[in-house]
Design a protein around this nucleic acid. Structure first.
Lengths: 225, 225
DNA sequence: ACCTGAACACCGTTCAAGT
DNA sequence: ACCTGAACACCGTTCAAGT
C-alpha cells in the first residue's frame, strides 16, 4: 500500500509545477484571471487552461459557472475592511465600510457585474451583512428596517460600481455619443436637459459619497410600511 | 431607371415572406426574441436566423452587439408611461413614473441587466430624463441636485429590477442555499442575522415602493456638497 | 451598397472512457 | 473518486467574394 506522503512525492517529481486540483486552487486561478483580464478572463476554459487541464476536470469541484462566480465574489469580499470601533460615529463607520466594499468591487474589472447577478451567501458576505446591521442598530434603526436598508445600500453600491466600471471599460466613442445626444436637444423640446448640458454626463466619479448620505438620510426618515 | 415602387413589387413576387433588412426590422426581431427567450435569445446569430439570413448581414445596420442592446433598450423605453398632470402631486407622479420604468424593465427577462450595462441615449431615454427632472423641479429640488438624483433613481430602479429578474430566473436551489446560510449562523457569531432569520431572505418583492420613498426623502434632505 | 458563406477564435456543458 | 479527450451546441466578429 502506498502512503499519501509517498504518492505526493512521486507526483511532485513527475509534474513539479502542477498543483493538485481543488476548489481553492480553481477560485484562486479564476481570481488571478479576473484581475488581469476582467470579466472576459473569468471563463471555465481559461481557468482550466491556466491549471493545465481540460474544462471538464473542473466540474468535480464546481457545479457550473455561476457557482464559480459566487465563490470568487465571496473570496474577494474577505478584503472588505470592517471599520474598528474607534473610527468615528456609526454613520462614518457605515460609510467607511460601504466605501471599502465599493473599492473592492471596483478593484477588479467586471466584479461589480458579478455582484449584481449573483446572490452571495458565503462567510464573508455574512460578516459584511452582520457589520452593516449592527452599525444601523447603533444608529437607532430598528432591526426590521435595517434588514431592508442593507439590501438597498449593498445594491446601490454594487450598481454604482458596475456603472463606473462600465464607463471605464467602454471606449470614448460611447461617452461621446451620450454627450452628443444631450447637447443636441433643443430648449423647447427638453428645457431641463438643455439647461443642464454637461452637468448630466460629466463628473460621475465623486457622487457615491453623496449617494450614501442620501440613502442613510432616507433610511432614517422612512419607516417601513 | 427602375422606380422604387416597381422594385418593391418585383422583390415581393420573388421573396414574398422576406421583409427587407433594416435597423428597425432587426430591433423588432431582437425584441421578440428577448420577450420569448430572455437574455439568452438576444444574440446576433438568432436575430439573423429569425430574419432568414446570416449573422454577417446584420453588421450593415448595427455596429455590434452592444449597439443592438442600446437600440432595443431605447425602443422598449417608449412603453414607459409619462404620468399626466392630473395624476396627483409631484411625488406621486414621480413614483408612478419610476414604477412604470420598473415594470417595463421587468416585463422582459434580462432587460434590466441590459439597462445596467449600457448607457442609453435614445429619444425615449431623453423624454424619461426630462420628465424626471421636471417632476423634481416641481418638488422644489434645484436642477443641479436633480441631475444627480435622477441618476440615483434610475440606477436603483434598474438594479432592483435586475435583482428580482435574477431571483425569478434562478432555480429554487439557489434561494435555498441562501436561506440555509442565513439559518446556519449562530447567535454568538452573528447575533443580528440570527435574530432576523427569514426576514433577510423573504418578501423582497414589495420593497421597491419603500425604496423609492427612501430615495426621495433622502434627496430632499441631502444637498449637494 | 448590400448581402453572403465560410472561417476564426472563442464559449459552457456532457459523456464515455480511462486510471 | 478523479481526470481526460472529444464532442455538442452554441457565441461575436471578420473577410473575401459575390450581386
Amino acid at each position: 500500500m502506498i502512503s499519501p506522503e509517498s504518492r505526493r512525492i512521486v507526483s511532485r517529481r513527475t509534474r513539479p509545477a502542477k498543483s493538485p486540483l481543488s476548489q481553492e486552487a480553481i477560485v484562486s486561478t479564476a481570481l488571478e484571471l479576473l484581475s488581469r483580464e476582467g470579466m472576459a478572463g473569468l471563463s471555465l476554459r481559461k481557468v482550466a487552461a491556466a491549471l493545465d487541464t481540460g474544462p471538464a476536470s473542473l466540474y468535480v469541484y464546481v457545479a457550473d459557472l455561476n457557482e464559480l462566480h459566487v465563490l470568487v465574489l465571496d473570496r474577494v469580499l474577505g478584503e472588505v475592511e470592517l471599520p474598528p470601533e474607534q473610527a468615528g460615529d456609526w454613520r462614518n463607520r457605515l460609510k467607511a465600510l460601504l466605501r471599502s466594499y465599493f473599492g473592492v468591487l471596483l478593484a477588479r474589472p467586471g466584479l461589480a457585474q458579478v455582484a449584481l447577478s449573483t446572490i452571495p451567501s458565503g462567510p464573508n458576505m455574512m460578516a459584511l451583512t452582520e457589520a452593516l446591521l449592527s452599525l444601523l442598530a447603533e444608529g437607532g434603526v430598528d432591526l426590521r428596517r435595517a434588514a431592508w436598508a442593507i439590501d438597498l445600500l449593498l445594491l446601490q453600491t454594487a450598481a454604482v460600481a458596475a456603472e463606473q466600471d462600465n464607463r471605464r471599460s467602454q471606449d470614448e466613442s460611447e461617452l461621446a455619443r451620450v454627450a452628443e445626444a444631450v447637447h443636441s436637444v433643443s430648449a423647447e423640446q427638453h428645457p431641463n436637459i438643455h439647461a443642464l448640458g454637461d452637468e448630466l454626463v460629466s463628473g460621475k466619479g465623486d457622487r457615491h459619497d453623496w449617494a450614501l448620505d442620501v440613502l442613510i438620510n432616507g433610511v432614517l426618515s422612512t419607516p417601513r410600511p
